[in-house]
Design a binder for these strands. Structure first.
Lengths: 355, 355
DNA sequence: TTGTAAGCGTTATCAG
DNA sequence: CTGATAACGCTTACAA
């Protein structure tokens, strides 16, 4: 049947069932105030007529969008490198779909455009809440979102806790995993452990860097170099080259994602170094490829889909007016594979900083 | 200012400007029928009052959602492996955002759920059009979408052309790139060229497989094995193992994506084979990591973001009632790097099929 | 050129 | 418990 056939509305159902539109609305949203028999009849008629709720009309009268926004600020070059989002979105959907909520997904080139996107989304009232990822130090977004009157859930806890009334968070502690990584390296006997990470403004970059530094300090080991990059494979390769050029190259490198670790691995191989015999490396994320490089990467696993699920749950709760929560999920944990081994025998004469 | 302040509506603007709501609407949508001076005044007042259009109200009265849907059927395990979508979505957005359209992005576990998602989206009239990816043979989706009364743009041309009135397509011919890959291998002297690809129901899997077979036939070379997998790194590794176990293993392997090629590379290395000296491999997609493995992967590049842009343009055109077009963008092209070389010297006695 | 009024399809209020 | 009636905020014939 072509779309010339007008949409069947609540009025049609009402007419056919011999009741008022209001009654139909009550029956359809199974709300008290309509006799059981009447309700049955209304429901039957609605089914017969093939009535479907109109999202648009509902939105207008309920002042609700039944949608949430996820906006991502990524340069075009970097956007494909991150395997996090599709999995995260899949997790979100497992709870959004049953609750008849949609996800507006936007990718913009930079953070300025990201803020603009939120402003527009709020001005047009296109969404009921927002998901904030890639938290940075002094991040302006939680405040902006709160000012715009929208609830938000951040991935990880912002550094200005409590400042913004309607902003909750769901966190997966990556410090635990990072510590496990560095400790496993220390235990294996490494004394020069470098860290290759992302831009320093990201909170999780800092957390992991601090975890790395903390374990080294506790073990009374010197901090080898910490290189800040842009998360890309190219940057991972570049950082690795640079580490190798040092007077005393590290015997182990911890990368803050698998992509950089894999790129780093290639550089090491090209330099004739065998992993893990000559040098150990670790990744982060536990992407599928991490299993399937040679050697398989020791890395840190985050339950991405579950993270998405919980974020969706909290967002739903927030739009119900519940006070924002700060949830901690199970921490990211070490996944031991084959890219870590004891360091090669130390060079003969060399006054190390190891005690 | 808290959200207690009621939203400023068109009526407020009208009152303040001393005109009717209708006039304001006309002025705001710069449509003829309102004097220049009046229009100015209305616009000024609207600016003063900080009026913002209400998407909900506009949606209802215009019977338009100002949104498109992209729904992805991917198992949780596979969803992260594909670097295509974030880049594609970024491309879509560069044209959707200026046109005030949003993208509803959904990831569902399988194709049944995907069809349900379209039905719901259409029933609720949540979107004005749909983007269809991963076209399969006898794909039920173009028909379904057409029956649901929605326009759609497919990525690549469906195999039942013209069957569905409002379905257009935007294609990037991957056959050209695939042919270039195989020809470069043939030119290098390879005579046993295998192909590792995805599930056979995908159209592009068939196209590429046929391109591979076609070049081999034209060169009067035997077709080595063609292995159908699920696109994953694990499957790529597994397929590679299997190819190596053959009586006469291939001297070159063409993978249908970079991820499988990288996983395959690791398997080859683990077997002590040097790429490209002992065996040549090629990928597809030209992901960032492809540059950064050792050796860098010869692959095929698709302009993903441009693809997204054009799809958005066509979708917009389709919702304007323009007849569906079938657009061909520039084909995917070979990117030569270092994973291809002539095959190792042929084993002494062996009657090759090369003429 | 401008104003009026009727949609768009629900939900919510408030007398009966 | 029921059923008019008025929002919700904008668009758009149709009059004036």
């Amino acid at each position: 049947m072509p779309d010339s056939a007008r949409r069947v509305t609540i009025a049609d159902v009402a007419a056919r069932a011999g009741v008022s539109a209001g009654a139909v609305s009550f029956a359809l949203n199974d709300r008290p105030g309509v006799a059981a028999a009447t309700r049955r009849r209304i429901l039957d008629v609605a089914g017969e007529l093939g009535w479907q709720p109109s999202h648009r009309a509902r939105s207008l009268s309920r002042s609700t969008s039944f949608a949430f926004a996820l906006v991502l600020a990524r340069s075009t070059e970097l956007v494909g490198a991150d395997p996090f989002f599709p999995a995260f979105v899949a997790g979100l959907n497992t709870v959004l779909v049953p609750h008849a909520r949609s996800l507006l997904f936007t990718v913009v080139p930079d953070t300025t455009a990201e803020l603009d996107a939120y402003r527009r989304l709020a001005a047009e009232q296109r969404v009921d809440g927002v998901i904030l990822t890639d938290l940075r130090a002094h991040d302006p977004r939680p405040r902006l979102i709160a000012d715009l009157g929208l609830p938000a859930i951040t991935l990880g806890r912002p550094d200005r806790p409590g400042a913004d009334r309607r902003v909750g968070s769901v966190s997966v502690d990556d410090v635990v995993g990072m510590r496990e990584v560095v400790r496993s390296l220390v235990t294996a006997g490494h004394a020069r452990i470098a860290h290759v990470t992302g831009p320093r403004e990201y909170l999780h970059v800092r957390h992991r860097r601090n975890a790395w530094a903390g374990v080294l300090d506790a073990a009374e080991l010197p901090r080898a170099e910490c290189l800040y990059t842009d998360f890309s494979a190219g940057a991972g390769a570049h950082a690795t080259e640079r580490l190798l050029r040092a007077d005393e190259p590290p015997t182990a490198i911890t990368y803050t994602n698998d992509v950089m670790a894999i790129a780093g691995l290639a550089v090491l191989q090209r330099h004739g170094l065998r992993v893990p015999h000559d040098i150990s490396i670790t990744g982060f994320d536990d992407t599928e490829l991490a299993h399937h490089v040679d050697p398989p990467l020791t890395t840190v696993r985050t339950a991405v889909a579950q993270w998405g699920e919980r974020v969706a749950v909290e967002l739903l709760a927030a739009t119900d007016g519940n006070p924002p929560q700060h949830i901690d999920l199970d921490p990211a944990r070490l996944v031991v594979r084959a890219s870590v081994a004891p360091p090669p025998a130390p060079r003969p004469a060399q006054k190390g900083t190891t005690r």
